[in-house]
Simulated scan of single mutants.
Amino acid sequence: MSVSYLVAGTALISFVLCALARRVPLLDAPDGGRKQQKAPVPRTGGLGMLGALLIALVAFAATSGPGAIAEAQPIQILFMAFLAVSPWLIGLADDWLDLSARFKLCLICLWAALAAAPFLASGQTLIGVAVFGWLIVITNAANFMDGANGLALGTLGIMHVGLFPAYAIMMLCFGTCAPDLFGEYAIVAQFAMFGAVLGFLAWNVRGVLYAGDCGSLGAGGLFGLLAVYHVSASMDGLRVALLGLTLSLPILVDVLLTLAWRSLKGRNLMQAHTDHAYQRLVARGWRHIAVAALWWGMTLLCAVAGVLALFSPVATGDPADAFPVQQLVALIALGAAGSGLWLWERRRA
């Protein structure tokens, strides 16, 4: 299955499923605050993207050989599938039942704890704790950024594809590493997610379909899992972690600085608000597509810089086990630049 066919096919399936999902009577009504649309809009786009993603993975399983996954135990396959689908289901439950913010956070924490459990069980306590915190932060951050058409999901689509170079490096181990039981499916999920986002954006950028918490939590959670799949105590594991963080900067900078600003102002962190930089730009009169394009551009910049830094040891001749200084420098520099832009926008009248 070629990448182009995978992306195009998943995009088409997602477009069709999103069209069907618009018929589901689950609407996002304007409230005069965060929700400024003129009329109620279906918030079921997440269902279309999830359906397209699952169809792509099933099609890959049906058309490819057994691969390394044949060596996995059924319980391992079920566990991985459960982790991948859970954020989508938590979001869907919130869309349908309007869960309280605290209860939804508890569910996400439980999911993150399950994902971190293998690291903790193997004695990698610090990594397990870091994975737990990372999954909570990136999943909620994706949800917080889903307030302008195209922004959050378009950004997450780019972030998913940006992980591929790290997976390619980890798979080219020339027989010196253990079989990667789920690596092929993780790569398919990255490009299938990108295609699913494209199909969804055909509706979303026109403001006629929203992702809902199902889509934002699901896509954010999937990226979070894929970003830590190869994380370990080795230098390769650190390189993968740094790439994931670099790709996430356009989302993390806005979310973390906004939360810090609200905390300093004594405002409720669990309450919905319009204090994010992207929300302020929309309030200033920016079109949604312009704000989304800005975030897409920043994410592409982070992806290019992150990948170049990832491959820099090859160009410089550094040993494979050397500390990834270039990646750390790129992360800090891009984070500082993003923070400067956030502060500049905040100080504007």
Rank of each mutant, 00 (worst) to 15 (best):
W96F: 13
Y5Q: 13
L343Q: 12
L281T: 04
H273I: 02
L26Q: 06
A333R: 11
A62S: 13
H160T: 00
L135H: 06
F79D: 11
Q326D: 13
V24K: 07
A293Y: 06
I108W: 04
L163C: 05
C18H: 04
M193A: 15
R284E: 15
A189R: 00
G133P: 04
T125P: 05
T44R: 09
W96E: 01
A8N: 04
T155I: 07
Y167M: 01
C18Y: 08
A81Q: 10
C109T: 08
L257T: 02
V314Y: 13
A141I: 00
F15G: 01
A320D: 14
N149V: 10
G162F: 07
H160L: 15
L89P: 07
S248D: 02
A283R: 14
V129S: 08
G335R: 14
A320S: 14
L17F: 12
L163A: 03
S4N: 07
K265F: 01
L78C: 12
G195W: 02
F79S: 11
I332G: 07
F200A: 06
G183T: 02
I138E: 03
Q271E: 15
S248W: 08
I55W: 03
L245W: 13
L281N: 05
D180I: 10
F79A: 13
F132D: 03
L343N: 06
P42I: 11
M171Y: 02
Q37K: 11
L27V: 01
A29W: 05
P30L: 02
K104Q: 03
E345G: 12
R206Q: 12
R34D: 09
G340L: 13
L331R: 12
V161E: 02
I75Q: 12
F182L: 05
F323R: 03
R34K: 08
T246Y: 06
F223A: 03
I289Y: 01
F194A: 15
W296I: 09
S86M: 15
G67C: 10
K38M: 10
L20T: 07
R22H: 06
S4M: 10
G33W: 03
L256P: 01
A81R: 05
L242T: 01
A168V: 14
A337T: 10
W203M: 05
G133A: 00
G195L: 01
A62P: 07
T176V: 00
Q124S: 15
L226D: 00
A260E: 03
T316I: 12
G150R: 03
A130H: 09
L6P: 09
